[in-house]
Design a protein around this nucleic acid. Structure first.
Lengths: 373, 373
DNA sequence: ATAAATTCCGTGTTCGTACACGGAAAAAAT
DNA sequence: ATTTTTTCCGTGTACGAACACGGAATTTAT
C-alpha cells in the first residue's frame, strides 16, 4: 500500500494518528551488531576500500534489517564538498521580462541549498543571436559544473551543447520547452497544448459569437514550438466543441520595435469584425496598449503570464484572463531536480508539468507562487 | 534594497550572477576575534548564563560584522530535543471527505521535519458534537505539545480551548477559518469573500441571463462563517456589475441523510426557472447527483474543492468550475509556521491567504498542489 | 622459511554547535 | 581579614558521519 494512503487510513480509522519520533540508527549501531568497526561499515556504505565479501553481506543485511538512514545533518556537516550548478536562459528583455522569473526561483532554491555547498553560476544568451548561445555554452562546459539548467531555445545549437554536456558527464534539465529524449534527467514546464485548450474554453465562454484572432508575438516561430502548441490546443477546443458561430484566424508579429504593427492589427480587427483575441505568450500587453490607444471596445482578451503590465490590463478589465504557468516555481523545481539527482542521488521524475493557472481580476491578488516560504 | 530585488538587478546588469560558496563563520572565529572562549560566545547567542555587559557588546558587534549564521547541520546534530505538535480538525465524513486533505499536508511536512525531532499527534472531533470538542481539547493540553494547529469550528468551544493553550504558553495557528485576534501566531486559509466574487464572475460569464440559486449544504450555519462570506462575495459581484438580468436566491439544506431535500430543490429550480447554481462548499456533488437523477439540462454549476466525486462531475461537464483552496497546502503551511516559530524562532506572517484556484475540465489534470516534492 | 605484496579492517580526527560542569575573579557580608 | 555570595567565563564532551592513515592478517612470491 502506498505510504501516504496508509497514513490516511490509519488516520481515518483511529482518529488519532501519531508520527513517531526519529529513532536514529547509527553506523555505530550497525558496527556493533555486525561485530566490526565503524570504518568497515563506512567502507561498505560508500564503496570505498576493500571489505571481505562475507562481512559485506552481513553488514548490508543488518543495514536493511535496522532500516538505517544516514543522518543528513551529520552527513552534511562532515562532508562539505562544493557543488556548482549552472543555468543558461535567454536574456530578459527588461527587468520585468518573463525570463527574470525562472531565475528568481532558481536563486531561491540555490540560496536554500547553500548549506549543502551548492553554488550557482548563471549565464544568459540573446534571444536573437544563436552565435552567442554557442560561445556561452562553451564557457559553461569549461567551468565543469555538476549540473546544468537549460532553456533549449535554439534547437540546433542546444543539441550541440547537449553533446558537450554528455561527453563531460554533466547532467542537465530542460526548462520551459523540451527536446524529447535528448538525455535530460528531467523536463520542467508547461503542457502547452492543454493550456491552449483552457484558453479556448474561457474565450468561448465569454463570447457566444464573434470572430477570433490568435496573435503570436515572436521573432522566430520555428524555435517557439510551445506557442504553436498553444495555438493548436486553442483551435482544437473550438473544433471539438462544434462552435460554428466563430471564425478563427492567426496573425504573427515579428517586429514590435516600432508601432507599425499596430495599424496592421487594428485594421485586421475592424475588417474581420474580431471580438476575441488570444495572445499565445506573455506579450499580451501589446494588445492592451493597442486597445487603449484606439479605444477599441467590446473585445475579450486572453493572454499569458503575470507580467506587471499584464496585471495592469487585467485589473482594468482590458484583458479578461491570464493563463499562468508559475515560472518561478519552474526555476525552483529545476534546481531541486538537479540537487536530488546530483547530491542526494535520488530517483526523479522525467517530466514535470506545471499547473495551468487561471487568473482573473478577482483572484490575481491572492495568487501566491511561493506559498511554502 | 530588498535582497531578492538586488539579486535580480545584478543579474540583469551583469548577465552572469554567481552565488558564492558558503563561507562559514564559526563560533570559534568569533571567540578568537573577541578574545574570549567559545562558551562565552555561546552564552551570548543563546541568552543563557551571565556575561559581562562589555564583552557581550563586543561579541555581538563581531557577530554582526562577520555576519555569523549558525550552521544548521551542526546545530541540529547537536541539539536533538524532540518537539511535539498536535492538530485538532473535524473528523472527515469519509475517506474522500474534505478534512482528510489538510491532514495529508500536515503529515507531509511533519515527515519532512522528522530529522529535526518533530513529532505529531493528531486529534479529531465530530462535526455535530461540541462536547467531544471540549474533551479532546483537554486531552491535547494534557500532553503539553509545543504547538497546535486548530480548526476553530465551534467558536465558543474554541475560545475555551484557546484560553487553556494560552495559560500553558502553547502557541497555535488557525486553519480553514479564523477567530480574529485570539492570540494565534498565524492563520492559514482562504479569503472567502473574494472567492465568492470569483465564482460570481465565472457564473455571470457563462450566463448572459437566467436566475441563480446559491446553495448552502451545512448543518450549523452559525459556525460556518466562511460560507456566508462566500455568499456575500458572490452577491456583491452581481451587485457591483449591474447585471439586472438575473435574480439571485439562497437556499439552505441542513439534512442530506435522506433524499427529501432533492425534491424540494428540484421544484425550486423549476418554479423559479433557475439557470445557474453556486454551491458554497465542497458538497456540490449533491447537486451533481440531483442533475443526473432528474436529467436536468442547461444548468451551469460552480462549486468548491477537488473531491473525487466533484472531479467526476467536472469532467462530465455537469459542473463547469470548481474553486479550490489547496487544502493540503494549508495543512503543510500550518505545520511549517509552527516549526518556524517554535524551532527556528523566526518571524512569521500573521495571515496567509491561499490562492483562489480556478479548475475546469481542461486544467484539472494538470493541477499539482505539491509541486515541490 | 622468509620476504614481499595484497587483502582486510581498526583508530583517531574533523566538521560546528549545544550544553553541562565547575573554577576563578570580583563583590558583598561577617 | 576572612568567609560567603555573586558574577563571570573556560574546558570538555557529545551529536553522527566522513575520511585519512596505517597496522594486522592473509596470501603470494622467492
Amino acid at each position: 500500500m502506498h505510504p501516504v494512503y496508509s497514513l490516511i487510513l490509519s488516520y481515518i480509522f483511529k482518529y488519532q494518528y501519531i508520527i513517531e519520533p526519529n529513532n536514529q540508527i547509527t553506523i555505530k549501531d550497525i558496527a556493533e551488531k555486525a561485530n566490526v568497526s565503524i570504518g568497515t561499515v563506512d567502507r561498505v556504505l560508500h564503496h570505498r576500500g576493500e571489505v571481505a565479501e562475507s562481512t559485506k553481506k552481513r553488514i548490508l543485511a543488518i543495514v536493511d534489517e535496522l532500516g538505517y538512514k544516514p543522518n543528513i545533518f551529520a552527513s552534511n556537516l562532515a562532508s562539505k564538498k562544493p557543488v556548482t550548478f549552472a543555468t543558461l536562459f535567454p536574456k530578459p528583455v527588461s527587468e520585468e521580462g518573463y525570463w527574470t522569473k525562472p531565475m528568481i526561483g532558481v536563486q531561491k532554491r540555490v540560496a536554500e541549498l547553500k548549506h549543502y555547498g551548492v553554488q550557482l553560476q548563471s549565464f544568459t544568451f540573446s534571444q536573437v543571436n544563436p552565435k552567442e548561445f554557442i560561445s556561452v555554452a562553451e564557457k559553461i562546459v569549461s567551468i565543469k559544473p555538476e549540473g546544468v539548467v537549460l532553456a533549449p531555445f535554439f534547437k540546433k545549437e542546444s543539441l550541440g551543447f547537449i553533446e558537450l554536456l554528455k561527453e563531460n558527464h554533466i547532467p542537465f534539465v530542460f526548462i520551459d520547452s523540451e527536446i524529447k529524449d535528448a538525455g535530460q534527467i528531467s523536463y520542467i514546464g508547461q503542457y502547452s497544448y492543454q493550456s491552449g485548450m483552457v484558453s479556448g474554453k474561457l474565450l468561448d465562454m465569454m463570447l457566444a459569437e464573434g470572430n477570433i484572432l490568435v496573435v503570436h508575438f515572436a521573432k522566430e516561430m520555428d524555435n517557439q514550438n510551445h506557442l504553436v502548441e498553444r495555438e493548436k490546443g486553442f483551435y482544437d477546443w473550438y473544433k471539438l466543441n462544434n462552435t460554428s458561430s466563430h471564425q478563427l484566424q492567426t496573425i504573427e508579429i515579428a517586429d514590435t520595435s516600432n508601432d507599425k504593427w499596430m495599424k496592421k492589427v487594428k485594421d485586421f480587427i475592424t475588417e474581420y469584425r474580431i471580438k476575441g483575441i488570444f495572445v499565445t505568450n506573455s506579450k499580451v500587453f501589446y494588445i492592451g496598449r493597442l486597445i487603449e490607444k484606439f479605444s477599441l471596445e467590446g473585445l475579450k482578451v486572453i493572454g499569458h503570464d503575470l507580467l506587471t503590465e499584464n496585471i495592469g490590463f487585467l485589473k482594468k478589465d482590458i484583458v479578461q484572463f491570464l493563463i499562468c504557468q508559475r515560472p518561478e516555481e519552474q526555476g525552483y523545481n529545476a534546481v531541486n531536480k538537479l540537487f536530488r539527482h546530483v547530491v542526494q542521488k535520488r530517483e526523479i521524475e522525467k517530466e514535470k508539468y506545471t499547473s495551468i493557472d487561471i487568473l482573473t481580476k478577482e483572484n490575481v491578488d491572492y495568487y501566491n507562487e511561493f506559498s511554502k516560504s
